[in-house]
């Protein structure tokens, strides 16, 4: 005859194990279906700034992407320079990005290359707005999947005012701007 206390503990352990095993089984079944991840549709994004403030990660998993084949390599880059910039140079007072996440490199007169420093980019989208208004729209926001923890209910998607967040297959996790549409030079 086993002691009553031991049996009760065993019953509890069995019950709890059943719940956990059941949970693992359900999640295993779900993993058999195609995995989806969150991504931003660049055509819908309005650069509201919520990607920078609403991600569960700090800094946000949303970063600026730059399509070099669309970029005009302009000296007067709307994504790099403030509208009221006194000079077209790398002076902090002239830069649009508040975190200085864009580097400007001289290529040849009058062309400059603009690179995004992902460690500094917080996904605020201010450069995207400047590039959209005056440039070719070569800068745009995307969720970086080596950073994103792929929450079931994405906090940014919940706050996005333009419904730009969508689920896409993990096998094709980025919504990159089509070079063919915009590229002419």
């Amino acid at each position: 005859m086993k002691p009553k206390g031991k049996r009760k503990r065993r019953d509890f352990v069995r019950g709890a194990a059943a719940v956990l095993v059941g949970g693992v089984a359900v999640s295993s079944l779900r993993s058999c279906s195609p995995k989806l991840v969150w991504q931003i549709d660049p055509e819908k994004c309005t650069q509201c700034g919520r990607c920078a403030t609403h991600c569960v990660l700090a800094p946000s998993a949303v970063k600026c992407f730059h399509s070099y084949s669309i970029c005009g390599y302009c000296d007067l880059c709307g994504g790099y320079l403030r509208p009221d910039a006194k000079k077209r140079n790398t002076g902090a007072e002239n830069q649009l990005c508040p975190t200085a996440a864009i580097t400007r490199t001289f290529i040849e007169n009058p062309y400059y290359q603009y690179k995004i420093d992902e460690d500094l980019c917080i996904g605020c989208g201010i450069c995207v707005e400047g590039c959209d208004v005056f440039g070719n729209g070569s800068m745009y926001l995307q969720v970086k999947h080596d950073l994103c923890v792929n929450c079931n209910e994405c906090a940014i998607a919940h706050a996005c005012p333009s419904d730009a967040f969508k689920r896409v297959p993990a096998s094709e996790p980025y919504l990159l701007k089509s070079d063919r549409e915009k590229r002419i030079s």
Binding site: Q47, G49, A52, T53, H54, A58, P83, L96, P98, C124, I126, E129, G130
Partner: peptide, 11 residues
């Protein structure tokens, strides 16, 4: 939530 973005983020 983190605080809202500051004035320097206004375009």
């Amino acid at each position: 939530r983190r605080t809202e973005l500051g004035k320097s983020f206004d375009y």
